[in-house]
């Protein structure tokens, strides 16, 4: 029963219900500038999809946010590993992470705009948003690794590479998985917000900014929908990769039942 609820968190009928409410609300308000109908948004989206510029814009934003995310995963994981091994690195990293976590994203965006061009702003911002989440979770995962298993590995003299792969990674993976799940949405939100403020040419943020300037609500909704869909697809893709990695970690040999 519980499993069936978890597996079907979003039901089609519920989505349709809210779409109908949205349609009725837009019909009642009857002013596209305030609330455009879902049908018009869909129509606008179809128009956008047909243009080559749409895909270039998507590629521009996606590539930067994905790069920022992947860099944060890499740096966060390596730092977490080093921090759990060397107290000095942990002590050095702790205030940095606290600062990144506490400083408002808008401050980072403005500061980054002063320092650099806006073109690669979303890489830095998504990196900064994801880094502390990955670091904290992976560090927590490493700290929670079963000490008894590590002793077992020590007694049997299992080489460290195998210890990392078969003992550390499988136990860290749930932490890493939840960190990715949380931070992916955040990377998109913060990355696009940075683009809206920095307005790099050819980005989704620029399109949103234009929609704001020209009060083009259908465009605003259509691009927002694009962001939501891309965020979901990117999240699913990354989580599938993490799952594949987790399966690889425990496959010493032999089939499973």
């Amino acid at each position: 029963m519980r499993q069936s609820i978890e597996k079907r968190e979003i039901r089609l009928w519920a989505v349709l219900f809210w779409l109908i409410i949205w349609q009725l609300a837009s019909m009642w308000i009857d002013r596209d500038i305030l609330l455009v109908s879902p049908i018009k948004v869909l129509f606008r989206l179809c128009q956008l999809v047909c243009a080559a510029a749409f895909w270039k814009t998507i590629f521009f934003t996606l590539s930067r946010i994905a790069l920022g995310f992947l860099l944060a995963v890499l740096v966060g994981s390596v730092l977490a590993g080093l921090s759990s091994r060397y107290r000095l690195i942990y002590e050095l990293t702790a205030p940095l992470m606290l600062t990144v976590k506490s400083v408002p994203v808008a401050s980072f965006i403005i500061l980054a705009l002063i320092w650099f061009s806006s073109r690669n702003l979303s890489i830095l911002i998504s990196f900064l948003m994801v880094l502390p989440i990955i670091y904290t979770n992976v560090f927590g995962g490493i700290r929670s690794v079963d000490k008894a298993l590590l002793e077992m590995a020590e007694v049997f003299r299992i080489p460290w590479r195998r210890v990392v792969r078969f003992i550390y990674l499988p136990q860290i993976m749930p932490f890493f998985n939840s960190a990715c799940s949380v931070s992916l949405g955040l990377a998109w939100k913060a990355g696009v917000a940075a683009e809206v403020i920095g307005i790099p040419k050819g980005s989704i943020g620029e399109r949103l900014q234009q929609a704001k300037v020209y009060l083009d609500t259908p465009d605003l909704f259509a691009w927002t929908l694009v962001i939501v869909v891309m965020s979901l697809v990117f999240e699913k893709l990354i989580l599938v990769l993490v799952r594949i990695c987790a399966t690889w970690c425990v496959s010493v040999g032999g089939k499973r039942t």
Binding site: F166, G253, G254, T257
Partner: peptide, 9 residues
């Protein structure tokens, strides 16, 4: 034992 592994593994 590694709980997430099979007996053979």
């Amino acid at each position: 034992l590694c709980e997430y592994m099979t007996a053979i593994e």
